[in-house]
Design a protein around this nucleic acid. Structure first.
Lengths: 198, 198
DNA sequence: TATTTTTTATGCGTACGCTCATATTACTAA
DNA sequence: TTAGTAATATGAGCGTACGCATAAAAAATA
């Protein structure tokens, strides 16, 4: 958890509850709040004119999202959509900036978070830019395994659909399904009744 | 310029000069210094086992590079190679961390820088993941035009080779050349005697 | 100037991911 | 349990970027 919830509340943050599929904020709009996820999953996604989705990342409880505009004063770089029912806590932008100004260790935690975000994008970019579907998928899986433990709950089971993997690697569902079957046949991953273990 | 050179010198930073093609640091190695470019161009690149390059970005004078490990204590995510003769100034990691601790406005400048880096990667990822070569190239060009003015010196002339564009968009040189000729024919860009204006 | 290296350019065959279409299998809710 | 939806699976044809080869032009170097 980036910022302790009690601290956020002390600074005037408020809870907000949204249903599955609701748009929390949209790509290109102004940012007035710091958002931190309390429960549920948020999909952070770019949606194309023709409806194609590119999922930049999935956000788990405790993480923040849509934080870029807080620091560089730009617009939201992607849309945040409630993947399931979510509860989030939010704080006005100016208050947030004041908070990190007074709490240097929290400020540094955000610097570190951003560094990790860049790192993840580095990894995916070099993988997506040049490599075959299986490599793209492997890169994503190994990252999730390391950094997003919530997505492989018990027994390393993957909690993403093939469609979501496709939307994170820039591939078609069919390609992902076929590639993952190959990986299964080669013993790289285990698929049992549609479920992926890795 | 992220940090004033006189301030860096006051904190014990030292100059370093490297020739064209020299490796400043390598992907996967430990980071002990903050690096800021004084003159020349640095290529920040992932090199594959089979020699293929993916250029994460080109660094211009005044910018810093290889800063991720300073904040998240990881290893270098890419290699830095002198594209031409370069002079850089560097400061020991611990000293750097102390410096930003004492200068909150500089700390925030780095947070902002990282936010911008994430933003750029967002842009490229969604473009590379799904789109045709021409879109990938357009995305890169418009970014360079906006953020890296040094790469379109006078009259918006692009200072990157087709090969470098290929290495930044994950395409083949031939594909880039063919696509850019198309873009020229459609009037999107201007190519005169091999030089690109946009 | 001449010589070497780098960059741009073009042709051609192949591989592979995309598109579309259709089943089948797993969940979810009534 | 059944109905309805979502997810997984598989086939066939097509388009296009890739890979390789080669050549010309431009730039860098001597």
């Amino acid at each position: 958890m980036i910022i302790d919830i009690n601290l956020l509340l002390a600074w005037g943050a408020v809870y907000k509850k949204l249903g599955r599929g609701e748009v929390i904020f949209s790509e290109g709009s102004e940012c007035s709040y710091y958002n931190q996820l309390v429960s549920g999953i948020v999909r952070w996604v770019n949606i194309d004119d023709d409806g194609k989705e590119y999922i930049q990342t999935m956000i788990e409880p405790g993480e923040c999202f849509g934080e870029l505009p807080l620091f560089d004063d730009g617009l939201y770089a992607a849309s945040a959509i409630a993947e399931e029912e979510v509860v989030l806590i939010r704080l006005r932008k100016n208050t947030f900036l004041q908070l990190i100004k007074e709490h240097n260790e929290i400020h540094f935690a955000f610097t570190k978070l951003l560094a990790k975000r860049v790192r993840f994008k580095f990894l995916l970019l070099k993988s997506i830019a040049y490599h075959a579907p299986e490599v793209r998928i492997s890169t994503l899986l190994s990252y999730l395994k390391k950094e997003h433990k919530n997505f492989c709950a018990n027994c390393n089971q993957l909690k993403l659909t093939r469609q979501q993997i496709a939307d994170m690697t820039g591939l078609r569902v069919e390609t992902v399904i076929r590639s993952m079957r190959n990986m299964h046949d080669k013993g790289d991953i285990v698929i049992e009744r549609g479920k992926v273990f890795y």
